[in-house]
Design a protein around this nucleic acid. Structure first.
Lengths: 116, 116
DNA sequence: CCATTACTTCGACGACAGTCGTAGTATAGA
DNA sequence: TCTATACTACGACTGTCGTCGAAGTAATGG
């Protein structure tokens, strides 16, 4: 019989018009979340939740993905049992011009050069 | 006789090279501190601590100025009994290109339009 | 139907940031 | 020398955020 006795898993995303600067700043102030954004930007393609490098547990990482998604920074969707992540770069650019690129560039500059 | 039995009040500022993104993000994530930065950018000239509008007490405001200064966002200097504040915009631009302007623009966009 | 994989939810805990009022300090002026 | 002004330093309090592990849920494959 039909297997899907529940609807396919969906994810809610805010319209960027209803996201304010405070929310985005709070999302981007956490170093782990910036690592996520940075890796996403660096890779240039969608990544599943399990493929990120971060010095925290899986459940904590889930929390960080939620914060980023609710701030409109990333978009998430399921592919089978895995959850994919994408930067909402274009939309963010329209809403907060220059902000995300500046942060990403700063991340890259810090992790790229041998600062430590 | 010579009155200055103490050296004139001075203020310490970090070299921007030794300020990291985390510190700047933490400085800019607080809405009161963004108000300070925003007013400084809007005014376009140095402002004394007492001339800022913020919904907090004076002592709290002092704390916010300290955070901004230690993050390299503002420069402070005494003029008699008042303390002046100025944005380190050019230096910040060199250290974290685009970051401060993006935040300032976002602040202006939010406070400018009748969002609430 | 069952096991596995991949992620989520929950509750608890610890740390720390923002806030205040009070008391203190440096400068200017009388 | 004394007072007023403008800001600072300190200690206390509070709320919130990041963190974890354990238990839960949904899809996939056998």
């Amino acid at each position: 019989m039909a297997r899907p006795r529940t609807a396919p898993r969906t994810v809610d995303h805010p319209d960027l018009a209803q996201v304010d600067l405070q929310q985005v700043m709070e999302a981007l102030v956490d170093p782990v979340r910036r690592m996520v954004v940075s890796q996403l930007a660096r890779k240039g393609e969608d990544m599943s939740c399990g493929t990120f490098e971060a010095p925290v547990s899986i459940s904590t990482l889930t929390h960080h993905f939620n914060v980023l998604r609710e701030a409109g920074v990333i978009r998430q969707y399921y592919v089978g049992v895995t959850k994919m992540n994408t930067l909402r770069a274009d939309e963010m650019e329209e809403r907060f011009p220059g902000l995300l690129p500046a942060v990403i560039a700063a991340c890259a500059a810090e992790t790229g050069s041998g600062v430590d």
